[in-house]
């Protein structure tokens, strides 16, 4: 912990005498947040899991080669018992196989590719759309706000599952369609939060100060508004990714998402409905991947929020300590 770390907290009186001895180069709020995040063990474990997943997804072909089976290859020799049932965990198939004798580990890492791509791409698209629409509505207000805010309300009130199934039926299930559907149903909630944030940032005195200096709207939006949005956006995005991943799995499970032949966690779960009574691993493996991934993203998101807003962390610590004391 450095001295500037202390000074950064507005709730504590800063001591110039102490600070003067510290480094001249100020540490940015981002650096401080990262330092706080690094101290959070659960967050670091979650981050490690996420990185591991990404690496696994990237080297999925290598894993496939190393295990010796392609994701779509049904191993009729070692992958299926004589009764035609999936085999359990063994040396050839570390996490067992499914009803067609396909290797579950290989399918799961290929599934991670789909899940992560769908999760990240749709979150990115939704965030961009949400920021543009939310920021415009919040910053300009008036008629623009009325129209855009109503549009977001309408989007949010769509029955998304029915809508997605109908689209899949009409155009055929595909990855791009899944991404579009998820984006369409995620951006509005981001947009709404962004709009609220922008309205509150717009009323801060530093925006007024910029305006009194003669700064134009574009400058104010890019220099004063957006940088102050980044913190909530990072949190929001981290929390949206797992939702998108679960959304993708749900759609795939229902046959309205990824092409059923492509390995994805949702498709694997869907397949497992036929076998889980005799082969629990067919259900548990994709479910575990899904659970661990969403949990990691959620824990990380929580931790990022705490790191970016130290006050909430402190409040939380006080509550925890208070509870302990009562016991």
């Amino acid at each position: 912990m450095s001295l500037t770390d202390l000074e950064a907290d507005a709730s504590l009186p800063a001591a110039e005498e102490v600070a003067a001895a510290g480094p001249i180069q100020g540490r940015s709020p981002w650096q401080l947040a990262w330092a706080r995040l690094r101290r959070d063990k659960a967050a670091m474990i979650s981050l490690a899991i996420i990185v591991l997943l990404i690496v696994m997804a990237l080297i999925a072909p290598l894993i496939s080669k190393w295990i010796g089976y392609a994701p779509a290859f049904g191993d009729r020799k070692l992958g299926i018992t004589e009764d035609g049932l999936p085999v359990g965990l063994n040396g050839h198939h570390p996490l067992g196989t499914d009803r067609l004798g396909r290797d579950l580990l290989v399918r799961a890492v290929y599934g991670a590719r789909i899940s992560l791509i769908v999760g990240l791409v749709s979150t990115a698209l939704a965030t961009i759309l949400g920021v543009v629409v939310g920021a415009m509505a919040g910053y300009f207000g008036g008629v623009i706000d009325t129209v855009l805010a109503r549009f977001m309300d309408v989007t949010l009130s769509f029955p998304y599952l029915l809508f997605a199934i109908a689209l899949a039926a009409a155009f055929g299930a595909s990855t791009p369609l899944t991404v579009l559907v998820i984006t369409f149903f995620s951006w509005a909630s981001i947009g709404r939060i962004v709009r609220g944030q922008v309205i509150s940032i717009k009323q801060r005195e530093f925006v007024e100060a910029a305006r009194s200096l003669g700064a134009g709207n574009i400058r104010i939006i890019f220099i004063d508004v957006i940088p102050n949005l980044l913190a909530p956006l990072i949190v929001l995005a981290t929390m949206t990714i797992p939702v998108a991943i679960v959304f993708e799995s749900t759609l795939s499970f229902l046959g309205a998402g990824i092409d059923p032949r492509t390995p994805s966690w949702g498709n694997m779960l869907s397949d497992a409905t036929e076998t889980y009574q005799v082969a629990w691993w067919t259900l548990v493996v994709p479910a575990a991947f899904l659970l661990i991934t969403t949990l990691a993203f959620n824990i990380l998101g929580d931790a990022v929020r705490d790191a970016l807003d130290p006050r909430s962390e402190r409040l939380f610590a006080a509550q925890k300590a208070g509870r302990k004391k009562k016991k």
């Binding site: 001295l3 202390l6 504590l12 009186p13 800063a14 001591a15 005498e17």
Partner: peptide, 17 residues
């Protein structure tokens, strides 16, 4: 000067700086 830090309060008399 400025109010003291409560994490590292000044030595001796708190007001000395």
């Amino acid at each position: 000067g400025q109010p003291p830090s409560l994490i590292n309060p000044p030595t001796g008399c708190t007001f000395h700086p």
